[in-house]
Design a protein around this nucleic acid. Structure first.
Lengths: 193, 193
DNA sequence: AAATACTCTTGACAAATGTCAAGAGAAATT
DNA sequence: AATTTCTCTTGACATTTGTCAAGAGTATTT
């Protein structure tokens, strides 16, 4: 499964064979059955992680007991994980589990930092991804504070058609912060138009 | 006004005099009258910026013509600006203007990159701030998709009491994505309890 | 000092969204 | 094949939130 990650990297940046070997030497593949956890709330998150195969979600349970999905991570994407837990070594408030059977590449925080120091192009690449994530997150806040539920849903399926087709509707509702019933009714209305 | 920034930096990291001089050499102070723009939508944003004095907000106008506030930046904080515009040189979708008369320290993108390369401690410091911002943004998304309007307001005044006391209520409503009237009613209810 | 603009509140009503309960069909499990 | 679980929808109703209009009190400007 490392080859998936390697292919991803090689499409983005130029790496020597030595660099690749170094990266591989600190990479671990973890297989997840469907519904299996990669991280459970109250554990400490200590990896950078990449989805080689499958599909994963990050969620938490709110004060009313409802699951709220913070992020979907499909194949060929990094998992956001819990940066707060990663930085502070405090227990995570998030759970990560497999929506489909998955294979996840893990690199320990310290190893990852070592890689970034030794491989400047990797460091630059990771920084640019962080920046993209930041922008995407800001976009999401804009959508949240501006759009109605219907507009949010339309925006979601237009922006993430692959995810929209792959996950159950109630998860999309959870991601958007609306109830599954409301989403169902919005969908009904939309077909009428 | 550079001394405010200098003091801020020296509390966080160790810098040589040369470093400080280098930073100062690329820093520009811009004074803003109340309500004056630092950035207008459709212009390109090209700075890293820090509020030495005053108070600034970042907002955009939504498709229904309403102002939506993305961020408040008080004294001694960086202004988020528009990272997308900064990165791509495309016109910004955001406006930044002064809530109070302000003095803003500006460093051009290219100069800022030069500083980060030449001063590793600065680079590390900026990275850690980016990370904190990222975590804060994720928190905000959680709040948005989980909390009711009332919970969001309570959370806001508890988390940012200084801002809450300083800006008009309708701006807080705009930041939270609720109407000014709703906020007013929530406040009334809260006093009854 | 007068005029103007801003801030906050309130009422009345409409629209959007949530909650609870139920059921039908599809998918997964045994 | 039967059972169980999951997914999606629907109805009925309550609650929350938005919109429009108005007004009172504060700041700000002229």
């Amino acid at each position: 499964m490392f080859d998936v990650f390697q292919k991803y990297l090689e499409e983005k940046i130029k790496l020597t064979e030595q660099n690749l070997e170094l990266i591989q030497s600190v990479s671990v593949i973890k297989k997840l059955r469907k519904h299996q956890y990669l991280l459970q709330a109250d554990d400490v998150w200590q990896y950078n992680s990449f989805v080689c195969k499958g599909f994963v979600r990050t969620y938490y349970v709110d004060n009313k007991g409802q699951e709220r999905i913070l992020n979907f991570s499909p194949e060929n994407y990094w998992i956001c994980g819990d940066k707060a837990s990663l930085a502070s070594k405090k227990p995570s408030k998030y759970n990560i589990d497999a929506i489909d059977a998955s294979e996840i590449l893990l690199i320990r925080k310290t190893d990852f930092e070592m890689l970034c120091k030794k491989i400047p192009v990797l460091n630059d690449f990771i920084n640019s991804i962080s920046q993209e994530n930041f922008i995407a997150m800001q976009e999401r806040i804009c959508v949240n504070i501006t759009f109605t539920a219907e507009e949010q849903y339309t925006n979601f399926i237009q922006k993430f058609p692959a995810i929209a087709n792959r996950v159950p509707k109630h998860m999309i509702a959870s991601y958007l912060g609306i109830s599954a019933e409301t989403l169902s009714r919005l969908r009904k209305q939309a077909t009428k138009k």
